[in-house]
Nucleic acid binder design. Structure first.
Lengths: 192, 192, 192, 192
DNA sequence: CATGAATGAGTATTCATTCAT
DNA sequence: CATGAATGAATACTCATTCAT
């Protein structure tokens, strides 16, 4: 009956948080966030009980957006390589389009504010991607799926860094990066 | 930058900073650092004009230590691959031996506290490593030495993460990681 | 003071206030009170213009209840001593039965929130009791009816404290307390 | 070597706390206290780690002052009645001279901020008074020393209330109050 | 009239930095 | 020069009160 919680305001707070965190890190103050969101200091706490919860919600929101982007047009019936390339490309493109969001996700993922529940919820969201990586590891008789996953992640990050610096070479870096990864991944079966 | 009055005290402060930053992040308070260093709160500010300067000096110090470690026993006359492997191995081993320092470096490198000057000074320190990488890039007719450099860095970081988790597999990861990198690097000439 | 729109709601708020104040003191928040009363945060302010007014109304309400309890079955024709004992006993019993209300009254009476008007209104409510005390003072040729009144009050409070701690000794404390008071009151005529 | 902690500043903070608590209750804000003490908001926390500790220290300080006043010229060899009267009188006089301090003590004693340690420390300070009360209880074959103690306390408080209102009648109230108490105490042996 | 979202001043406490000793 | 007390702006969060729905 009373004024309902305004989803636009919640979004404004989350977007403001993205903006502030990108500029000032995770210690961006709640008052900086509310100022940026054009709401009063107290309003943040009607949408999120405390700052830690806000950060967890923010990460979930971003991971959700990202997983949707990654899964859009995912070629379920294609070869492993095509699946992997699709995920790779989608991730790089999303990151280029949302550099601020990517920056937040990176900071949040390594911070001590994110709960185990949140980490697991994210794993659940990215299930399809992890399935590709598992398949990839298995197909290479790879002793360490985790290592391949980490390598893919770090090469993708490096690729994104360069795409952000030279957006006109996006295609070039996406392909070069992926084939470097693919070649590297091929190595593991021999060395494992 | 600050004229060191008692070098031992300056070092104590820097070491205390490493310790505190590893445990509490970059927002470790100056008073926590001085407590750990067994000096008074004010003393920090006779050695460093402010906290940001301290962080910049700390990063320079750590980059210096690291570059020395990387260059120790560098095989000037060896093949490019051997030079690259030497640097790779030296970096991984130093990082395993100085996990706290590496952690600081990583946090500092992505923080908003490090000035452009500091970033360039670090580039200068790692000149020898970059020379190897330039040579490597040239030998592969690689269009993007910087990209290879970044890839080497990110694969090394990934390798270190796994060595720190499974120290008994250090050799395995060092070699697997390097050959993955080498294979990946070989790709660039074809794709560039 | 505020025209009661729904008396049941007004009562619910006052009862919730009693409950919260007993547990958290006078700084119990209005939102805690409304939550306990099962009404919304804003509703409190349609029944009471502000928190201070609520507290004053609450005290008046409690004083009213208490004065009714004290007067119930009052032996109008009995001796002064019997009248005094009746009031004494009624007060102790009411306090034991309504420990939470008594607690509120005590806190409110010494707080800086209660206005002079409220204090005088309470005096008015307890007129009958004061009449007994006046009679008592007169019968003892006592120079200070107020002092006797205060002594009776403070000895009754002490008695109640002990009754609440040892409810099985209620009769014992009621009688011991009253006879201590009676003896004390007898003193005044000699010393005044 | 550096500026030493200034006892005068500590005292200023405690006195400011007394003043603010008297006016606003125990929820007087630390900033109100520091404003009154003419120190900055942060200084309070160099003298006391937190507000609760400040309140405990304040009560200990006041209890110390009071116990000194109560014990000054205590007639160790006199009769029980003379000892009791001495304590009674000393307490009333101290309370009249330090109405603000007395008010603080009363509020602090019933607050939830005071630790068990503090309560015990106070018991220790007032040991001599408690010994008199024990002796008094024993001499009356009184079943409940605690009750007599409480009665003495509450009658003293009532006496003080009247002395504060009519300071010119101090002697009158001190004596009347004490003899009322003495008479009341005599009752217990018959009723216990 | 009831609701509860919005507000912003207020809370205890921290912290980088200054400066008297 | 070392010390650590003093400072006051900043922090996350609360709360009485208002007002749009």
């Amino acid at each position: 009956m009373a004024r309902p919680l305004d989803p636009a305001k919640r979004t404004a707070i989350l977007n403001a948080a993205i903006h502030c965190i990108q500029q000032q890190g995770l210690h961006a103050s709640t008052s900086a966030i509310t100022r940026e969101a054009n709401v009063s200091a107290g309003t943040l706490f009607t949408y999120f009980p405390d700052k830690v919860t806000l950060l967890n919600c923010l990460l979930l929101e971003l991971a959700g957006e990202m997983s949707i982007a990654l899964m859009q047009g995912f070629p379920v019936e294609a070869s492993i390589k095509d699946k992997a390339f699709h995920a790779w490309q989608a991730y790089v493109v999303w990151s280029r389009q949302h550099a601020d969001r990517r920056h937040c996700v990176k900071q949040l993922m390594v911070s001590c504010f994110i709960s185990e529940e949140t980490h697991q919820a994210i794993q659940g969201m990215l299930k399809s991607v992890y399935e590709v990586l598992n398949e990839l590891g298995a197909s290479h008789h790879c002793s360490s799926v985790e290592f391949i996953t980490a390598v893919m992640g770090s090469l993708a990050e490096t690729t994104i860094d360069f795409v952000l610096r030279e957006p006109e070479k996006e295609r070039h870096y996406i392909e070069m990066g992926f084939y470097m990864f693919w070649q590297a991944a091929g190595m593991t079966s021999e060395k494992a």
